[in-house]
Nucleic acid binder design. Structure first.
Lengths: 157, 157
DNA sequence: GTAATTGCAAATGGTTTGCATGTAA
DNA sequence: TTACATGCAAACCATTTGCAATTAC
C-alpha cells in the first residue's frame, strides 16, 4: 500500500530538519498537492493545483521544491519524451517499483511490474560486472482503448 | 553484421528520391560522418566531425538532417537524461535491437540484448491489450571499470 | 525555372539562476 | 538575527524556425 500522506510529509520534515532546511507554507502546499495529485504530474499541472490553494506561489519554487523531493527520495523524475519532466512518488514512497506502457495516441500511462523482467535485468547487469542502481523501462505503442477506436483496416496493420 | 555504409547511403537515396527530396553535399557529408562515427553521438559531436570535412555546414542543417535520418528509419533518437539527444543507427540498420547499460560515473554506454526480456515485454503488452511499437530499456549504475576504481569501503556499499 | 535546401540569426520553451525581499528558527 | 526561501524576471541551453540566398533537378 501507499504510505499515508502524513507519513510522507513526516519523511520530508525529517529530511529538512537533518539538512537544516526550513518548513515553509509553500513547501507544505506543494507537498500536499503532489502527494495526492495524479501520477506522472508535470510542473505546470502541479503549479495549477498549488495555486488553487495559494495563488502567489511562483513556478521557480515548484521546480526547486520538486528537486528537493527528488533529492530526499520522495519523488522520481520521469521523461516520456514529450519535452517536460514528470514527477511521481518514488518506488520506496509508493507501494513498489513499476515501469510504464505509454500510449503514443492518447498519452495514457499504464504502470506495470514484472518480477521476471526485474530478475533478468539483474542478470544482465551481473553479466557485465555492472552495479545497477535504477532503470527505466518504457514500452511505447497504442493502448487498448485507442486500438479499439482504430478502423478495422488500420488495426490489421 | 552492420550494413556497409554504401548500403545505408543507398537506402537514404531511395527514401529521398521517393519523397522528392534532394541529394546535397551536406547530406552526403553528414551521412558519412554519422555512419562511421561513434554510437550514441550528439549533434554537437557530429557537427564537429562534419566540419572536419566541410567547415561551412551549419548546425541547423545537422539537426534537420538527423531528423530526416530518423524519419526514414536509418537513425534512432536516444535520451540518456543528460540534456542532449543522442543518435544511433536504428535497429534495422545495425545488426539488431539492443538496450543500454549507462554508467553514471564515466558515462560509458554498454549495449545489451536479451531475448527473454524481449519476450516477457511482449507478454506484458499483451496482458494490457497494448500494441507495442518500440521500447526503451536503460539500466543506470556503475560500470565494472568504475567499480574497480572505487575504494573497497565504497564498493561494499 | 522553381521548389527544396542551406546558413544565419532570432525565436522557442522548459528549466535554472541572480537578487532583493521575506521569513522560519 | 541570520541563514534559508521566495517571487520575479532575466538567463540558459538545446532545439526549432523564418527568411533571403543558394542549388539540385
Amino acid at each position: 500500500m501507499v504510505e499515508g500522506t502524513a507519513t510522507l510529509y513526516a519523511r520530508l520534515e525529517a529530511y529538512m530538519a537533518k539538512k537544516g532546511l526550513r518548513s515553509t507554507a509553500q513547501r507544505r502546499v506543494i507537498a500536499e498537492a503532489f502527494f495526492d495529485g495524479p501520477h506522472h504530474i508535470t510542473i505546470e499541472e502541479l503549479l495549477a493545483r498549488v495555486r488553487q490553494r495559494d495563488p502567489h506561489v511562483g513556478y521557480a519554487t515548484v521546480y526547486r521544491t520538486l528537486k528537493l523531493f527528488t533529492e530526499c527520495g520522495l519523488a522520481q523524475e520521469r521523461d516520456f519524451g514529450d519535452g517536460r519532466t514528470r514527477y511521481e512518488l518514488s518506488d520506496e514512497s509508493a507501494d513498489h517499483h513499476h515501469d510504464h506502457l505509454i500510449c503514443l495516441v492518447c498519452s495514457t500511462v499504464i504502470e506495470f511490474h514484472d518480477d521476471k523482467i526485474e530478475t533478468l535485468q539483474a542478470k544482465v547487469a551481473r553479466r557485465f560486472g555492472f552495479r545497477a542502481e535504477r532503470h527505466k523501462h518504457e514500452i511505447y505503442g497504442t493502448c487498448s482503448t485507442c486500438l479499439a477506436a482504430e478502423t478495422p483496416l488500420a488495426r490489421a496493420r
